[in-house]
């Protein structure tokens, strides 16, 4: 059994072993092993040219990664916390996302940008945000997030191996969750990076969640089962592109859908997913697609963050509303 954080560490190690062009760069990723220890021990084993402690400048991390990628490297950037990505936002949105298009396909930027995200750890401001929609909205970026150790191990390797720029969101409050991970499993033939996965089958309603909210959705499904409702839980995993066929198939069967995410609901991923379900599954729906999300407020102070974060009760409340329609 290893934690999600350790699974990422193993995945990064394997990526460094598999491709000499992979370099890890970020604040405190070397000697310290990152503030969450995700890169623990990697600089010691791969050297300061492969695991680079950078100056404290996020635009610099991503901007120099662009240059390294033009040179043929495969950079893996760590942004220390979700709320610190914005100094790099210009480089990500204006350069990383667009260079392949700008060059008519002649240039590839196989950059992975890891961002620990989400709340629930009692942190100060800027350490608990869920900025995934900003990136999912940007053509040219792919956006994924893992919810468990097995996916963490596989998806980080797939993201790094991909020639696309990938924003890789890590559910920081699940870093310590444990699972069985086969560290020898070959990457080829693994579950595809951009596929959604049914993580609990059920025929009565569909819960759609990703990252830290998958655990909440699974717990809600367990609780609902005690009341005789079988909820299907889908781990969306890929936020851009979204694997809609899996979602549509489920919703056509269940007729009900609830989308759960920590980010504010306004113009969030849930809004897009709800719109697409409505367009594609209209005659299968027994109720409108409902959303359980963060409120449209700046991320709150730690001692009241539990009021902000979607939890089991709020998810079940939404399920009740769906059935009561």
């Amino acid at each position: 059994m290893i934690t999600l954080g350790k699974a990422l560490n193993h995945g990064l190690r394997r990526a460094l072993e598999d491709d000499p062009k992979v370099v890890i760069m970020g604040e405190d990723v070397g000697k310290l092993g990152g503030v969450f220890r995700i890169t623990d021990g990697l600089q010691k084993d791969f050297g300061e040219n492969r695991v680079i402690d950078t100056p404290l400048a996020e635009a610099g991390i991503v901007g120099t990664a662009v240059g390294l990628a033009i040179r043929g490297f495969r950079p893996v950037c760590e942004i220390q916390f979700d709320g610190f990505v914005f100094p790099a936002y210009n480089q990500i949105v204006a350069q990383v996302a667009k260079m392949h298009y700008r060059s008519k396909g002649k240039l590839r930027l196989p950059i992975t940008i890891r961002i620990p995200y989400g709340g629930g750890i009692g942190a100060v401001e800027h350490h608990s945000e869920s900025p995934e929609a900003y990136f999912a909205h940007t053509p040219g970026l792919k956006v994924v997030t893992c919810s468990n150790p097995v996916d963490a191990y596989t998806m980080i390797q797939q993201a790094i191996a991909s020639d696309d720029p990938v924003i890789f969101f890590e559910p920081k409050r699940r870093y310590w969750e444990k699972g069985e991970v086969d560290l020898d499993a070959p990457l080829s033939g693994a579950f595809p990076l951009h596929s959604a996965r049914v993580v609990r089958p059920g025929g009565d309603a569909t819960l759609l969640a990703y990252g830290p909210m998958v655990r909440v959705a699974l717990d809600a499904a367990s609780a609902a089962a005690e009341d005789g409702r079988e909820l299907e839980v889908i781990d969306v995993r890929s936020l851009s592109p979204i694997d809609y066929p899996v979602i549509f198939e489920s919703v056509r069967r269940t007729g009900r859908a609830v989308v759960v995410h920590e980010a504010p609901g306004n113009v969030g991923l849930g809004a897009e997913i709800a719109a697409r379900i409505t367009e594609e599954c209209f005659y299968s729906l027994e109720a409108p697609v409902l959303r359980v999300t963060g409120y449209d407020i700046p991320y709150p102070a730690a001692r009241i963050e539990e009021e902000y974060l979607p939890d089991l009760d709020r998810v079940l409340d939404a399920v009740d509303r769906s059935f009561g329609w």
Binding site: G63, A65, G67
Partner: peptide, 30 residues
Amino acid sequence: GGWDPNEFKFNQYTIVIGSQTLHATGYAMG
């Protein structure tokens, strides 16, 4: 733009002011 920077040893034109200085620095680190 549409050209390959590596073919010509000349990066694509960069319109957002100053962004290319970081690209140059990263390339030079490489």
